[in-house]
Design a protein around this nucleic acid. Sequence first.
DNA 1: CGTTTTTTGGCACCAGGTATCAGTATGAAC
DNA 2: GTTCATACTGATACCTGGTGCCAAAAAACG
Lengths: 203, 203
Amino acid sequence: MERLPKRQRHQQLSRLIEENPFLTDRELTRLLKVSIQTIRLDRLELAIPELRERLKMMAERSYDPVRSLPLHEVIGDIVDLQLDKSGISLFEIREEHVFSRSGIARGHHVFAQANSLAVAVINDEIALTASADIRFIRPARLGEKCIAKAYVRSSGSQKGKAKVEVFTYVGDEMVFQGNFVIYRSRMAGDAGPEGGEAHENRG
Amino acid sequence: MERLPKRQRHQQLSRLIEENPFLTDRELTRLLKVSIQTIRLDRLELAIPELRERLKMMAERSYDPVRSLPLHEVIGDIVDLQLDKSGISLFEIREEHVFSRSGIARGHHVFAQANSLAVAVINDEIALTASADIRFIRPARLGEKCIAKAYVRSSGSQKGKAKVEVFTYVGDEMVFQGNFVIYRSRMAGDAGPEGGEAHENRG
DNA sequence: CGTTTTTTGGCACCAGGTATCAGTATGAAC
DNA sequence: GTTCATACTGATACCTGGTGCCAAAAAACG
């Protein structure tokens, strides 16, 4: 006999709940044409929590301050900042930053941390990323804490440009490295084309 | 007699629940030193729904498709895709993508569109961004529609690496340009270090 | 056929409530 | 003092959406 029916139902169940986590067991009963006990056995086997737990988890996620402001001005917590010299920020790879299947952080989050720090370290009202040269050295994974260190290589007092080098580590492993060129507003009145990133003077 | 106690309690109750919507009536009992019946009367008067309803509402809000996936697998709508050749994606700069003050798009969104497209255009189960060389030519602003065009310059059948060039336009103005190096899984067994971006085979 | 897996039914129980009725305390009004 | 209104508390029945457990029925398999 094909055990498929059960497995198929399991797949369907997973899919249905993923599509609509608000389904009660009773509603699933109608959709899958099996008894409510079977639904519950299935959820047990598949480790799918009950409706209320699902809603609670969703509510918790949406209540999470980190997630509620999906991408704030500065990505990562800046723990050290010496303007026009260097800076350090921390960023923990969480559920919402990774691909669900692989657990690998989406590149732009890692990029965003580095970019934010590169912009923040510039001592100016407005700073704009002009260009960047970046390398993903190894993937950052769920749960890992990324430590980004930025060093201002040339503050660009003369040209309105600054070069900032950023290294991102997990532990002592480098995961990312980038060279950023940042336009700054103060030095030369209009210091060329605007970049793609604004620094709006906060922490 | 001051009716303040009741009003104060009502204020406190509202504040407590706003701060932590996960509080049950029983927990509120402890915090406000009144009976559970009083808590329930208060909630009734203040039209504060029960815990489960609160969680459900939060879950529903977070399930809102627009809000729930702030940064999905692929940023931007891919409107054309010729695997291992080229691709086009559209991305509208919305409120949540810009700095509130300047209305300028945060760089990593523009980057993310380009990066997503560069990865998507590679015809392979897993594709990882290894490095990138990017330039923000002018800022993208709120409401603008970014059109990213990706061209595979060398599909890398031999080395497990592919080079992809991406140009992003608003109208006929170029706002971003990037050269991406993408590792691909299929060609050579272990094609070197993993990059920072995974392609999980969708659309 | 017998055995195993799968499915179903039934029952007790739980949290976190709603709804309703009754009783108590307290202070102000007459 | 008595009466009345308001606030608070208690108790009970009931609801939803489950868990946990046990037993029986049904289906599939060798």
